[in-house]
């Protein structure tokens, strides 16, 4: 498959005032295929933005190189930049200009002019559903509207690669859904390659064809979600909320005896209605959570229900497949949001 982006041992070192180095990116090598949505996932400060800033030509790599559509970002920066559309996390627009004036201004920065510029502006305005407000100043827009213009500016030059840095940050659910749908449309309708950074694993899971996980300036895992979870050998989880049984031990023994259950956890103290102390009286919690670890949660579900259904009343039941959070936890020993 053709590579839209290829980085080779990309490194960035910043110097502190006392001349001690900070290695923000430590040799990132990756390949992003044409027409895919690639998410770079990592906690804040992991090196996502620095990596992307180097790929988009904003900052010079200390070592290594990045190639956009075959053009070196170091040697052929202008050609490489013409292929990129940038959608920063911040609303990188002039608030005192209208939406259309912003599009005109940034279009000119891509050397667009005349009829072509007008056509591109109309195209973007229609695509981002901005027709009614196109002549209004940006500082009169809602947060969601600003986000849409922000994305629209990044699409003006019909880029082959769109870089989107956490575009749903601070956006309400309705606009968030709209933005995610836009990302799909860019790939499916316009065959654009999307490089998406986020710290929200749900977004990465939903959007991405492939995911790169970055931590402390290094890519620690890269592949499809299935590949990543398979790689760490994570299991499905059956999470069952029950009315607290009178004979807890018998229930747990029965579950642990099942050959496909690798581990069973039982929790009462973390529940919202866990044991409550009022004065000297302790009121026992009325509910508990059973978590059964197994290779195929859906397959085991019926058998588990048969075992516990005879003994306790079930409040809810859910099969949870291994997610990126689990992958990150497994790889780094800490949660993604830590």
């Amino acid at each position: 498959m053709d590579a839209m982006v290829e980085t080779k041992d990309l490194r960035k070192t910043f110097m502190r005032k006392d001349s001690t180095p900070i290695h923000a990116v430590k040799g990132v090598s990756l390949s992003i295929h044409k027409g895919e949505i690639f998410s770079l996932l990592g906690p804040n400060g992991a090196g996502k933005t620095t990596t992307i800033s180097m790929i988009s030509g904003l900052i010079e790599p200390s070592e290594g190189d990045a190639f956009i559509g075959g053009y070196s970002i170091r040697q052929q920066a202008r050609q490489a930049k013409e292929l990129i559309g940038v959608v920063p996390q911040e609303i990188a627009l002039y608030p005192e200009l209208t939406a259309r004036q912003n599009l005109w201004f940034f279009g000119r920065m891509y050397s667009l002019r005349g009829k072509e510029l007008k056509m591109r502006m109309d195209e973007v305005i229609e695509f981002m559903d901005l027709e009614e407000r196109q002549h209004d100043r940006i500082d009169t827009f809602s947060g969601g509207m600003k986000r849409r213009v922000n994305i629209g500016v990044g699409l003006l030059n019909r880029p082959q690669l769109v870089y989107m840095d956490e575009p749903t940050a601070g956006v309400d659910p309705q606009n968030r859904r709209r933005i995610l749908d836009t990302v799909f449309r860019l790939r499916d309708e316009y065959q654009m390659t999307v490089l998406y950074t986020t710290h929200l694993m749900e977004e990465a899971e939903e959007l991405s064809d492939r995911i790169g996980i970055i931590d402390y300036g290094e890519i620690i895992a890269l592949g499809t979600q299935a590949e990543l979870t398979e790689r760490i050998g994570a299991e499905d989880r059956l999470v069952i909320e029950v009315k607290r049984p009178s004979d807890e031990q018998t229930l747990l023994d029965a579950l642990r005896a099942h050959p496909q259950a690798s581990k069973v956890e039982y929790q009462v103290d973390n529940l919202k209605d866990g044991d409550r102390r009022v004065g000297n009286t302790v009121t026992p919690a009325e509910e508990a959570v059973l978590t059964v670890y197994c290779q195929n949660g859906r397959k085991l579900l019926v058998e588990v229900l048969n075992i516990i259904g005879q003994q306790v009343e079930i409040s809810s039941i859910e099969v949870r497949q291994p997610d990126l959070e689990a992958v990150f936890l497994n790889l780094t020993g800490r949660a993604l949001r830590d």
């Binding site: 030509g57 930049k81 940038v86 920063p88 609303i91 990188a92 920065m109 891509y110 030059n157």
Partner: peptide, 13 residues
């Protein structure tokens, strides 16, 4: 601070 400058510098300008 608003990343407009970065956006400009990410364009072929």
């Amino acid at each position: 601070d608003t990343w407009v400058l970065q956006r400009l510098l990410s364009s072929p300008t």
